[in-house]
Nucleic acid binder design. Structure first.
Lengths: 146, 146
DNA sequence: TTATCTGCAAACGTTTTGCGATATA
DNA sequence: TATATCGCAAAACGTTTGCAGATAA
């Protein structure tokens, strides 16, 4: 869990290193990603960005997200029936806890699976790039509502 | 890894128990699911089914898949940028190994994560329903091509 | 016989694209 | 100034839906 400001600075630095331009729209997207622990969708990011930057388009949000994913600075979380959610605060593989009712996504602190990744690589001959570990369930709040 | 025929019989039995009708289109879909270890997409299932059943529609394939998912007899595997893939042979949560180049999906035999699920449930108060553990990498064949 | 299921075609939501206009470096 | 990036609107894509007709039980 990087500090939002530190993470924002990091994202800006990475983009600059890459020779990318720092347009206000992009910085606004980066700010949302570095700040939010809600694992927002593209649409949600767009809504946030529009709040203090009304002339931004959804297409630009998507283009920025695609760029960051390609740079390895953004994790995509896609699960069935819903739009892709993004984790820009922690860029390395880590487990998530997803509520199937309210669609809330939380980061989970667990022992990293890197040793397991290594074992899988050795056993299968695959070059493992990343993993996804997601637990699907019902959060305490949604359990109460039932 | 259930025997294809046994798994097919099982799927048919479950559908019958549920009061569902065994139309030829449905049985053809079940057959593909019980037989294939390729984790096919809806489109791929449709192509297979059309081979010996040309008057089937893609909508019917989707409807049958949705029914089986709801029954808990089919696992959906969705990853970014691609269509949903289905695992009808092993219905309980289990890890997969996905090649990001050729999109091949293989079942992985690992110690089950049920103890970990339990730990997560206790620590978070969530009621855990299932999990997904997917390793993304490049398979030996695709590594050679590079 | 009748409720479930089918095929069709249109609708849907998300994401991507092509373009001429704009603004960063 | 040059070119990366922008907003727009249209297209693409996978998936779902409504409905009239067909069919399994």
């Amino acid at each position: 869990m990087a500090e939002p400001q530190a993470r924002l600075d990091e994202l800006i630095a990475r983009l600059r290193e890459r020779g990318g331009r720092l347009t206000p729209q992009r910085v606004a997207v980066l700010k949302v990603l570095a700040t939010s622990d809600q694992h927002p969708s593209a649409e949600q990011i767009y809504e946030h960005v529009k709040a203090d930057f009304p002339m931004t388009s959804l297409a630009t949000v998507y283009k920025t997200l695609a760029l960051l994913v390609e740079m390895g600075e953004l994790l995509e979380i896609r699960f069935c029936g819903d739009s892709t959610r993004y984790d820009g605060r922690i860029a390395h593989s880590h487990p998530h806890l997803i509520c199937v009712k309210c669609k809330k996504i939380k980061d989970l602190e667990l022992a990293p699976l890197n040793p397991l990744s290594k074992e899988v690589a050795e056993r299968t001959g695959y070059c493992i790039l990343r993993y996804r570990l997601d637990f699907f369930g019902i959060c305490p709040e949604c359990q109460e509502e039932e």
